[in-house]
Structure formats: structure tokens, C-alpha cells
């Protein structure tokens, strides 16, 4: 018998690459530390998830919705600190990288 695959209609979910090991079915999912909405959701100001409401990665390893963080940084009392650990916020350089997907 010879089997040829002609085409394949599949279904996939996208995730942000948060650098963590793949936990496909982990119920505990990561949420933005500011708005408490899942990363794959969108921040309160947005309606469309994904590229319209991207994440922002900090050097300090904390990740937020970009809109949430920018809003925080924009307020006076933030003093440009990461809201989680109070270190100065430095946006991490994303390495195009090799975290091999499964």
C-alpha cells in the first residue's frame, strides 16, 4: 500500500513564546501581571488579541501586555519601574530564537 498525503486541514492554537517549556495542557496559564488577563487574551483597551495586542518582554524576565505596561510607565508614580519587582524597566531584546517547538 502506498499512501500519499494530498492536503491537510488542521487546527492549531497560537501561543506567545514566553520562553517557558511547552506545557500544552497546563491549566495554569500565564496572565499579565497588570490586567490579570491571559497573555493570549487582550488587554482591557483592546478588542482583538494577537498581533493587535502584543506582549512586551522585560530584562527582568517579566512579561506584560504592551499596552498595559506602557500605560503604567506613562503614569507618574511608576518611576519607570517594573511593577513586579520595582527594578528599572528595560525592554528585552527579543532574540530570534531557537526555542524549538515540539
Amino acid at each position: 500500500m502506498k499512501v500519499t498525503i494530498k492536503s491537510w486541514n488542521a487546527i492549531a492554537q497560537w501561543r506567545w513564546d514566553t520562553g517557558k517549556a511547552d506545557q500544552d495542557d497546563a491549566d495554569e496559564e500565564d496572565v499579565c501581571g497588570i490586567c490579570r488577563v491571559a497573555y493570549e487574551g487582550c488587554c482591557p483597551a483592546c478588542k482583538m488579541p494577537g498581533d493587535d495586542c502584543p506582549l512586551i518582554w522585560g530584562e527582568c524576565s517579566h512579561i506584560f501586555h504592551m499596552h498595559c505596561l506602557l500605560k503604567w510607565i506613562g503614569t507618574g508614580q511608576s518611576k519607570q519601574l517594573c511593577p513586579m519587582d520595582r527594578r528599572p524597566w528595560v525592554t528585552a531584546e527579543r532574540k530570534i530564537n531557537p526555542s524549538k517547538s515540539s
Binding site: 500519499t4 488542521a10 530570534i96
Partner: peptide
């Protein structure tokens, strides 16, 4: 998946392998 990640560097795909359909030719 590799091509996708190359296209959207920050994202990756989680496959729901049991869904969808495959068109195959069986000889």
C-alpha cells in the same frame, strides 16, 4: 511550525491534531 515562528517570531503553534481533516490518496 518552524515557518510560522519565522514569520511571527514571538508566537508558536500548539496543534490540535485530532481535529481537522486529511485528504489522502491510498494506492
Amino acid at each position: 511550525s518552524r515557518e510560522y515562528t519565522a514569520f511571527k517570531p514571538d508566537k508558536k503553534l500548539v496543534w490540535l491534531s485530532h481535529m481537522g481533516s486529511v485528504k489522502i490518496e491510498v494506492e
